[in-house]
């Protein structure tokens, strides 16, 4: 059995799609992301390349959300 390998959203490549597995953040952050549709089990696509710890832009459902680098580092994804 392979252990499930998780990558943070910040490390994902542009254009890659993955499933959110863990959000390593406080209640406030989790609730906020939850309301935007970013929650464990959700399939999302990363749209941009991160430049110099800039924000990550992801596509969730049909909307685009920009996440600061600090937060993107705390969202862990499973990539198929």
């Amino acid at each position: 059995m392979f252990a499930l390998k998780l990558v943070s959203l910040a490390e994902m490549k542009a254009g890659q799609t993955g499933i959110v597995r863990t959000i390593n953040g406080g209640q406030g952050m989790v609730a906020r992301l939850q309301a935007l549709g970013l929650h464990p089990g959700k399939k999302i696509t990363k749209l941009n390349t991160v430049f110099q710890k800039g924000p990550v832009v992801v596509e969730i459902n049909r909307s685009r959300i920009a996440l600061g680098y600090g937060r993107a580092c705390r969202i862990f994804m499973e990539i198929k």
């Binding site: 924000p55 832009v57 909307s63 685009r64 959300i65 920009a66 996440l67 600061g68 600090g70 937060r71």
Partner: peptide, 8 residues
């Protein structure tokens, strides 16, 4: 300051 979460 926590980093941003913003819809585009």
């Amino acid at each position: 300051t926590p980093s941003m979460i913003m819809e585009i």
